[in-house]
Design a protein around this nucleic acid. Structure first.
Length: 884
RNA sequence: GGGCGGUUAGCUCAGUUGGCUAGAGCGCGUCGUUGACAUCGACGAGGUCACAGGUUCAAGUCCUGUACCGCCCA
């Protein structure tokens, strides 16, 4: 029997040094490697989230990534060929913003490309001040995005490695790399062929700062202060005012864009107006008055103006009532230069006055335009009726929800632009069906997916007017006037991918035809970043590539992710798999909660309450941080609690010390024969059963808790203590062999149960003896403990033996503690009071109890157990051995 | 306004399909400790399981309602 010399191991476990050692060792042993040749049914595929590369990881990332690594390590030990890839989501606005801030640059079209651009030199040349941005070409900008994402990826990778994540880096990808771009464009081609995408020029939600369209999923409501402005309109018949009414609006700056008036059909106050025309004050524009059930009689004055466009209902009314389009807001969020009385849709009863007023707001942003409009409406000259100033009262402040792009700082506007969409509204039933085919952990998260799907009201807008992303692989022919023919879109062919239509030439054209009449023009837009990241399963499985592995990897087994991106990442991924493969993308979805600060607030950079993982890692080590993460249920939010890192650290120390102790015990080889040892193994068997079941149900925190409880309680506090004498006995050779064998088996099994949570300390302890015994160089290459494996040990004569011994030794400790006798003092005689059953149960293991209690003899007396005890130990002061 | 989750010891959280006396860690108190472990051990105190009804032989657990906290959506 190989054992260790206790003194050979350091007194303390050097966490930082050993974690570094084991990271290298795992990678040398290829612990994380999958076998690409293994069949699908032996493979367990994790669709791990590619983190957004936009600066730094925070502790919330670590929390959820740890959950998936715990799963990966468990599945690997349980015999699966685990595919655990990692990607980087470097597309999109977060990266662009970071580049803007990091380098102090801004991209604009029609700026020449500079080779080997040195920002500092160019800034100096342009004479820019600190807060001014250097304007650069799109291509230079994209190059900088690559530089920044590579930098960030290195940092992220370091942290992931320090956490001991068993990521298979041979499956690494980035959403901007060639393969991802090819697969994203392939996705578009497939959707185009199947008729699932379309482009349309229509009002869409628009962020005026980023100057791009946004999708429903990226919109959030924010409660903002605003004000109702009561404005009088005239009602005209035969070009003369016959009556008037007052509307309430929070956006008087859109008055020039007013194209209609509406009120609820049952509203008796306004019933007589329907079918007539109103005239707007200030601009004297005639607009129809129509009924609509969408109008809320309780809101404002009950009658309101319809503008192009104030909100989503304006869009609906505009469409349904076939109203004029009078768009006054430009893509940059400023009021456009328009002329009343000039062409169609801009008629006015008094063009001169309209234009005089309008000129005052041209070029302004909505807030400035608003205050100018309010002043204009205080002017009686601008009344449509001659009844006095159109603004009837001072503005009335209110709080109301305003729609924002989640990453934006200005309210969203509705602008008519041409955008590409994926048709999803007609497929919500199929989406719900897909949702039901998957198991959600925890189950209630399915509801969030269903709610979102049921409430979807716009198709998925996938085009973005940005730079750093995957180009939409499309060109448009130019007619004789050089105008793009959008209906004749030319889609790239499969062989061309990945392709940038801004530089590549479409089939059937020559490069010199770009931009000239009769030639072509490339689509300048890129995809929504979710369009690419929603293909993570297809990307990892190399869908459509020469080394396509869809058959051995798809559908995947599990998608781990945060619950905040169910409506985006989960939703779109399910949509893509449905549209492309007519399948679910995975069988399980596993949702981690958030990390809250100790005041129960969500950690975020803006609040300044974030904790960086690196400082936590430095303080406690990876195993302790993993312990913290593993102790929370899926889906539930976790407080960032220093105390739990400390407990994790204590567990690491305890495993180290218990391991050292157990493996330094020596004995002849021999079977596990003693009653107490067999009873202990029987308990261990039950533990293995429970922990395995918990893992299979994705209940990692239960698995950890069960193992931990057994380890501290049954194993270290009781079993080891009960065996201390026998495991060193000089005369009970068989008993000693049995004790040491059972101790080792117990340690061996528990190390494996702990391994997914605390991979370093368990592998360290494993390496001392078990690695050599089993031939498994790492515990992470060893197999998961099974009940079958423990069946080799015969069952105890009495199933209650271990419990009885534990209860009895507790009673002895209690008695010693209460009579102030130190625990290791010898007793000449120990009296144990119990009922008959208690005595019988203890008879088989009484020697171990006596040894552990330091009692020379145990005498049983009869008593009736109460709720609190089965055994009562009685110690006479005279029977305590004097101190040596 | 709709949906979801939570409310258990001073704190952070467990509590499987309803079933003996509601658990753990931290904190607190007392005691102990030089042959695994001071990053320690033992023992102890501490809970009307948010509230009100109901189902049941039996409810922290199931049902109904209420309150508060949080999240998602409108």
């Amino acid at each position: 029997m190989k054992s260790i010399e206790f003194g050979d191991l350091p007194k303390r476990f050097d966490i930082a040094e050993r974690e570094a050692f084991w990271r290298d060792r795992w990678s040398a042993l290829g612990v994380e490697k999958r076998d690409p040749e293994a069949p699908r049914e032996k493979t367990y595929v994790i669709d791990s989230p590619p983190p957004t590369v936009s600066g730094s990881l925070h502790i919330g990332h670590i929390f959820s990534y740890t959950h998936q690594d715990i799963l990966a390590r468990y599945k690997r030990m349980a015999g699966w060929n685990v595919a655990y890839p990692m990607g980087w989501d470097d597309n999109g606005l977060p990266t662009e913003r970071r580049v803007q801030n990091y380098f102090g640059v801004r991209a604009e079209p029609n700026v020449p490309y500079i080779e080997n651009l040195d920002v500092e030199i160019e800034r100096e040349r342009a004479g820019l001040k600190k807060d001014q941005s250097l304007v650069i070409s799109r291509q230079n900008f994209i190059e900088m995005c690559h530089v920044v994402t590579e930098m960030d990826e290195t940092v992220f990778k370091d942290t992931f490695n320090r956490m001991g994540y068993s990521i298979d880096w041979s499956d690494e990808y980035a959403t901007i790399d060639d393969k991802s771009r090819r697969i994203a464009q392939r996705s578009f081609l497939d959707l185009y062929e199947k008729g699932h995408v379309y482009q349309i020029e229509a009002p869409t939600m628009w962020d005026v700062d980023f100057q791009t369209a946004v999708a429903q999923a990226e919109v959030e409501d924010r409660d903002k202060g605003g004000a109702y402005h009561d404005i009088e309109f005239g009602v005209f018949e035969a070009d003369a005012p016959i009556e008037s009414f007052v509307i309430s609006t929070t956006r008087p700056e859109l008055l020039a864009a007013c194209v209609g008036i509406t009120a609820h059909p049952d509203d008796t106050r306004f019933k007589g107006l329907f079918g007539k025309h109103a005239v707007t004050p200030g601009f004297m524009v005639k607009v129809p008055i129509f009924p609509s059930t969408e109008a809320d009689p309780e809101k404002g004055t009950g009658i309101l103006m319809v503008c192009t466009f104030g909100d989503q209902t304006d869009v609906t009314w505009w469409r349904e009532q076939n109203l004029e389009l009078r768009q006054i807001l430009g893509r940059n969020g400023r009021i456009l230069d328009r002329t009343f009385g000039s062409d169609d849709g801009w008629a006015s009863e008094d063009p001169e006055r309209a234009n005089a007023n309008y000129r005052q707001i041209v070029g302004k942003r909505p807030p400035a335009a608003k205050s100018i409009m309010v002043d204009l409406l205080r002017d009686l000259e601008n009344s449509a009726t001659g009844n006095g100033a159109p603004l009837r009262d001072e503005p009335r402040p209110i709080q109301h929800p305003v729609r924002y792009y989640e990453k934006g700082d200005s309210p969203l506007e509705y602008l008519t632009t041409r955008q590409w969409f994926v048709r999803l509204l007609d497929k919500t039933d199929q989406m719900l069906e897909m949702g039901r085919k998957m198991t959600w952990h925890p189950e209630f998260m399915r509801k969030r997916f269903e709610n979102w799907t049921e409430n979807l009201n716009v198709d998925w807008c996938i085009s973005r007017q940005r730079y750093f992303g995957v180009p939409i692989p499309v060109w448009y022919p130019l007619d004789d006037q050089g105008e793009p023919q959008y209906d004749g879109a030319i889609v790239a062919t499969a062989e061309m991918l990945p392709v940038d239509p801004e530089s590549a030439t479409p089939p059937g054209y020559s490069p010199d035809q770009r931009g000239i009449p009769g030639g072509f023009v490339g689509e300048p837009d890129i995809f929504d970043t979710w369009f690419t990241s929603s293909l993570s399963p297809q990307t990892v499985a190399r869908w459509g590539e020469v080394d396509d592995q869809m058959k051995s990897m798809f559908p995947m087994d599990v998608r781990p992710q945060g619950h905040d991106i169910i409506r985006t990442w989960a939703f779109y991924t399910i949509a893509k798999a449905m549209l492309h493969q007519e399948s679910v993308p995975w069988h399980n979805v596993m949702l981690s909660g958030w990390v809250l600060d100790p005041d129960r607030k969500k950690m975020s950079k803006s609040k300044g309450n974030t904790v960086t993982p690196v400082e936590t890692l430095d303080a406690y080590g990876a195993d302790a941080v993993r312990y913290w993460s593993g102790s929370f249920r899926l889906g539930s939010d976790a407080a960032h609690d220093e105390a739990i890192f400390k407990i994790g650290g204590k567990l690491v120390t305890k495993i180290y010390n218990a391991g050292k102790f157990v493996l330094s015990q020596t004995a002849e080889d021999g079977p596990i024969v003693n009653e107490l040892d067999r009873a202990f193994i029987a308990e261990l068997k039950e533990l293995v059963r429970r922990v395995t079941r918990a893992f299979e149900n994705y209940e990692f925190s239960v698995a950890l808790q069960e193992t931990e409880k057994f380890f501290w309680g049954a194993f270290t506090d009781n079993y080891i203590e009960l065996l201390k004498r026998r495991s060193r006995s000089e005369d009970d050779i068989a008993g000693r062999a049995s004790a040491v064998a059972a101790l080792r088996l117990g340690l061996n099994v528990m190390l494996r149960l702990f391994a997914p949570f605390v991979p370093t300390i368990t592998d360290e302890a494993w390496s001392w003896v078990f690695a050599g015994e089993t031939g498994n160089q790492s515990i992470h290459l060893a197999s998961w403990p099974t009940v079958l494996e423990l069946d080799a040990v015969a069952p105890p004569a009495n199933a209650g033996s271990f419990q009885a011994a534990s209860d009895a030794i507790s009673a002895v400790r209690k008695a010693k503690s209460e009579s102030g006798v130190s625990l290791n003092r010898e007793l000449l005689r120990l009296e144990l009071e119990s009922d008959e059953q208690g005595e019988n149960e203890l008879r088989l293991v009484v020697d171990d109890v006596a040894a552990a209690g330091g009692a020379n003899t145990i005498v049983f007396t009869r008593g009736t157990p109460s709720a609190d005890w089965r055994y009562t130990a009685k110690i006479e002061p005279a029977e305590v051995e004097a101190k040596a």
